[in-house]
Nucleic acid binder design. Structure first.
Lengths: 207, 207
DNA sequence: ATTATCTATAGATCTATAGATAATGC
DNA sequence: ATTATCTATAGATCTATAGATAATGC
């Protein structure tokens, strides 16, 4: 290979993550991404076929860990409120702790693009997992749909909160957010016992 | 005047509202706005000094009604949970019922622009009003800040929910959303009595 | 021969301004 | 004289492709 850097592709994603979350997709030029990644503008196209594929890669790497966790929790046997608390806790933590507030990518109008249908499907699957846990919590079936919308909205709102206050105390927000999700569903009050049980569910998955 | 239309400025705002909420600010060209408004591209600049001023006008007209209501409710004498329910109900209703999902404008990365500081101030004032009602609900002071963040996030999440499902049953979401805000704060459970009281607070303000 | 980069550029925009034009109000 | 519009365009991009170049692996 030529005088290449160890992992240019990763540097591009890192740069794009910062710029897309800060300025948005359309307002970020391929030149700005390349500059920050230490490449020339045209060299981006060796690693990605088009600008939109950079966004697609970032979206995929953001939603996938949450989705993997959700699949395990949906299949779990613990009380639904415990599993819901655990999913919300981990999911908000991933969004809140990611470099560059990647959750803000979900807010970009470009996620509606036909080329990003795969991301939208994965995000819908994550929401469906929340929906199963909400339904299993014993909520009246006619309310479950709307409450799932609200729960998912509350979880994702971490991106807006973090944008408004970049110096956010993420750990406090994560715990309050998970508590809030359970209170919002309205079938159980989060107790220390529930939280401890949820942490035990999450502990073995941390590796 | 020349062969002008009754209210070109309003037609521009209407067109921009549709395009900005759908495709975002940067991806919407002044030509597209003008075309939809029935003008030539350059004629926009008779009504607005720059593209960003069109966005500023839309943001202002979206936040202002909620802010006016919030100011009245903060000064009210009803129980805090009732006033909070009323504010959330009206605010979500305004965002959910507006033409073109104008609440999605709050999600655009361009709201961070220096030229839109006035909007950010008004939005911060609205959030502060929620904060006063949350604090007055009797929440522990160390939790009030984060819960206000979450409450405000839940209210604004109507924009994402509506974007995901344009055929949303807004009225059902508004009521469930206001209930959810009160449950999320965690000091009172919404009852029919509370809702009725809140509606009485809102009734005289409807004109 | 393959990999990863570069320079140069085609082709297509995009915003905002300059200056002309026509209808209305005084 | 003022208001609201238009045509034309300057000047500045922006994405993606073509083709050259240099280092490495066989």
């Amino acid at each position: 290979m030529a005088a290449n850097r160890p992992d240019a592709r990763q540097a591009v994603l890192e740069a794009a993550g910062e710029l897309f979350t800060g300025a948005g997709y359309a307002a970020t030029t391929t030149r700005a991404i390349a500059e920050r990644a230490g490449l020339r503008q045209a060299s981006l196209y060796y690693h990605f076929p088009a600008k939109e594929d950079i966004l697609a890669a970032l979206l995929a790497e953001t939603v996938r860990p949450s989705l993997a966790l959700a699949a395990r929790l949906v299949a779990g046997a613990a009380p639904a409120a415990v599993r819901l608390w655990a999913l919300a806790y981990a999911d908000i933590g991933l969004l809140g702790g990611a470099r560059h507030n990647l959750g803000a990518l979900y807010l970009l109008p470009e996620v509606g693009s036909p080329n990003l249908a795969h991301f939208r499907t994965e995000r819908a699957e994550l929401k469906a997992a929340y929906g199963r846990l909400v339904a299993a919590s014993g909520i009246a079936p006619e309310s479950a749909g709307i409450r799932t919308d609200l729960v998912f909205g509350l979880v994702e709102s971490i991106a807006v909160i973090r944008r408004d206050d970049p110096a956010l105390d993420v750990e406090a927000h994560v715990r309050e957010g998970a508590d809030g999700v359970v209170r919002l569903v309205g079938v159980a009050d989060p107790t220390d016992g529930l939280r401890a049980q949820a942490h035990r569910l999450l502990a073995p998955l941390a590796d």
